[in-house]
Design a protein around this nucleic acid. Structure first.
Lengths: 157, 157
DNA sequence: AGTATGTAGTTGATCGTTCAACGAGATAGA
DNA sequence: TCTATCTCGTTGAACGATCAACTACATACT
């Protein structure tokens, strides 16, 4: 007789946690995004990209690498960088060593926008997430999400 | 002398956790969404709405209440329900007791779509998230996200 | 009753993301 | 060298979310 693998249903408790996760990430991301937009005209995805650029040598990263770092599609990064370029926050540079390569570079203006935005963002993360969280719980969440990344994103980040 | 409240910077460890959270939710949601779309033509937001409807008395919830339950704007819910209505998964009903009220109702066809989708979804949540997570860590994440919801979503969910 | 204010839900424009298709340069094999 | 095949990055169309404006009904006040 054949054994069909039954779908492993979630326990009531697991379901409760999963829903809290869904709802929590929704309101948290939404709020951080709104705060950033209101104060600096920057969306969360844009902000994340700028952070990566600011930390890279030469404040410059190749498009594909950038896409991988923030886990967005290449197309998405192309569009996002195009928008940021229009605002003079980043610029595109030809990549030496690879004729196809294009790298995004954070401008000085972009860097100062990011510096300002970082305050808003970090304050939000602190107030909405860290403030009322038990540090041990916070660590636990880190372990879990790190595991998720490793299993779904081919061991990156 | 005046004391300006300094931005409470994140520790290296907190930053590590926060980035894992950002990256993890991105790849996790993306994957769950893709699985659902590929197998049942349903997005995550759509799926969440159907779950709420399926649990409600009469498989029916008023638009505003639904919007609040999934933490989406009313406009967004209107559009989403409109799409689902086109596919005969939900239908709109006039709400008795309130002339303005409209309630979304899950159709029988919608219910069977949801039943099928639930297998895919739950399997995903299990495989990508729960499987390799320590149960205590998982509980910890639940506490944190519950706290986030309570502070940002006016104590709902 | 009549007016003002608030809430429910919708609409259409705009903006950001996804998707499929593409051009161009790199890489590997015959 | 020639020709696959792969990766890089872009493009434009389609789709979904956001936003401001709006209609219609409800509620509260006078």
């Amino acid at each position: 007789m054949e054994t069909t693998t039954a779908t492993p249903w979630l326990s009531a408790e697991q379901q409760r946690v999963w829903r809290a996760f869904l709802g929590g990430t929704t309101v948290l991301m939404d709020r951080l995004d709104r705060d950033l937009r209101a104060a600096h005209g920057l969306s969360m995805p844009e902000y994340e990209i700028l952070v990566r650029l600011s930390e890279a040598p030469g404040r410059s990263i190749r498009m594909a690498e950038l896409a991988d770092a923030v886990a967005h599609s290449r197309s998405r990064v192309t569009h996002t960088i195009a928008r940021l370029e229009r605002e003079n926050i980043v610029l595109r540079g030809q990549c030496s060593e690879d004729g196809r390569g294009v790298s995004a570079v954070l401008t000085d203006h972009g860097f100062s926008v990011l510096e300002a935005a970082a305050h808003t963002h970090v304050q939000g993360v602190h107030d909405y997430l860290i403030e009322n969280a038990d540090p041990a719980d916070f660590e636990a969440m880190g372990r879990i999400m790190q595991g998720v990344i490793e299993s779904l994103h081919g061991r990156k980040f």
